[in-house]
Design a binder for these strands. Sequence first.
DNA 1: GTTCTAGAAC
DNA 2: GTTCTAGAAC
Length: 415
Amino acid sequence: MSMGSFRLRVTLEVIALYSTGRCQYVRVCLLVDVHEEDCASCAAVFNFQCFVFNYNTFSSRYITSTGEMPVCLLVSEDDAHKPIQLHHQQSVTLGRGPETKIKDKKCSRDQVELRADCNRGFITVKQLGVNPTIVDDVVVGKGNQVTIKPGQRLYMVNQQYPYTVKFTEDTSTPRSAADLRKPAKRAHQMSSEGNGEKIKSPANKTSTSHTDHNRMSDDSPPAKKTQPSGSEKSESAGHWSQGLKVSMQDPKMQVYKDDRVVVIKDKYPKARYHWLVLPWDSISSLKVLRSEHIELLKHMQRVGDQMVQQCPDAHKLSFRLGYHAIPSMSHVHLHVISQDFDSPCLKNKKHWNSFTTDYFVNSQDVIAMLEHDGKVTVKEGTSELLKLPLRCHLCHKEQPTIPKLKEHLKTHLPS
DNA sequence: GTTCTAGAAC
DNA sequence: GTTCTAGAAC
């Protein structure tokens, strides 16, 4: 039966998430002529998707309206710290720690999981800690979740540490399609079907790109050297331990991303190749991982394997994929690191032992633990492993000092 | 996590 | 004297 041809009107709302944390939505209307020879409308729709996501060809005449998505702020009522910005539909775990400045041991480090819906103007609050989180005199209860809107009050734990939620317009967000096309503020391209996007060649060898790497370090907000510029100043990630959350959002740092994870080069690589695979979802540490995270961790490992396969030196270097048992930096991150350990950033015993003792837990072992026990446990005394004598990871010969160890490692380098 | 530096080790 | 480490500070 002949279909003839017809005109398809497509309206699509695109949510742009900027590296600064701001959101904007753009409504796109397109008229697509579908002809019989296109075989099926899906072909036209497919082409349409390619067109939309190829941002540089995105003409302003297709944009029928733009608007500011409200920014969600969690405000400390006792003014203990600056408001914490919550990104649209991104889970954030909060509790005792530098972000909230709460030191009360009754408050878990992972007391609540928050997820803001900036369109509809509420936050979903899930209590993770044992002690009660309270919303308007009602105990949430461990494992339960409630919503909180402006006007309501959240007590982090035991009628203490009051918070309110606020949604405000961010007037600094670019308003025109021309603004949107400026590369520095361009939204991250995201596959609609979860297919990954290689941003630039992973062949950026960390040891040979130190000039570039250091330049990037100077641009981005490290612990003390530089301050974030512009709107980034208002972000809550000021403490050094929150640095990964900032770096993962920085397009200059990203080498791969898809709908679940992002890969960045380690800012201080401990080997020729050293990447970090991070989930977009805010997962503070291995401790909060449960069975429901298994698929995500398997995906992180697949992406890590992919980084290795695409590495031009993969044939002559070996790699390990794993997690630090007790990481210093918040936000779960999978290390993908070549085993040459040929890097000026590897400077001390802690660096060495964190990658060459059981302090480094293989990705497969973490996944196996989750599959078997439903959680990840770290053995007692693991932190002591960082103080062990320096021992070559290949021939196990002990070395007296870091400089001697580095000299020794050269003997194992591929020719 | 890094940087800085006092003092131990050589 | 120099080299190197470990712990405080950030």
